[in-house]
């Protein structure tokens, strides 16, 4: 089964059809998606700025990360669910959209950056927990995360202007 066939089958799902047919469905999904993204970026921003060396509301980087990350993850799950539903409503168009493809790649890169941080600098966080600025490895992770999530938001907005919508 080719990718085109799978994308067309997603497009043909009753759920995808109802998102296309209901005038309020797409704006509601978009609003929830934007809300989730502002929560993801807003909470990550606080952690990333702390990693770069800007003071947060508490000195301990470890406690700050543990305090903010649950909110980031819940919001990220909402962003993924609403994103998947919007994708389903026009699967072939999204899959063919360059900005959409680049956005997915950038999200994966942000995930890789996070995984590297957690398996390296974060392992030794007890050594630099209260340091401002933190060691270079943490600062680089924080800076990369800020840059990558900014690109994700910009690409996301660009999809709205470049997508060839089929109704």
């Amino acid at each position: 089964m080719s990718l085109d066939t799978i994308l067309q089958q997603i497009y043909d799902l009753p759920l995808s059809d109802s998102i296309r047919e209901n005038v309020n469905a797409f704006p509601l999904l978009e609003s929830l998606h934007v809300l989730a993204i502002t929560l993801v970026f807003g909470t990550i921003l606080i952690v990333d700025l702390r990693l770069v060396g800007v003071a947060a509301h508490r000195r301990s980087a470890d406690r700050l990360i543990r305090e903010m990350l649950p909110y980031t993850w819940v919001a990220f799950v909402v962003a993924v669910i609403t994103g998947v539903l919007m994708f389903a409503s026009n699967a072939p168009s999204y899959a063919a959209n360059l900005e959409f493809q680049l956005k997915l790649v950038t999200i994966v890169l942000a995930g890789v950056n996070m995984a590297i941080f957690h398996s390296t600098a974060h392992r030794r966080i007890a050594d630099w927990d209260l340091d401002l600025p933190p060691p270079a490895a943490a600062r680089i992770s924080g800076f990369l995360s800020l840059a990558l999530w900014t690109v994700v938001i910009v690409l996301g907005r660009w999809i709205g202007f470049t997508l060839a919508v089929v109704f």
Binding site: R157, W158, F161
Partner: peptide
């Protein structure tokens, strides 16, 4: 789209800070 991107990034700052 560029101005809207800046607008959303700034909303994220408000939402994160307010949260």
């Amino acid at each position: 789209p560029a101005v809207q991107s800046i607008h959303i990034l700034a909303i994220a700052v408000v939402i994160g800070s307010a949260l």
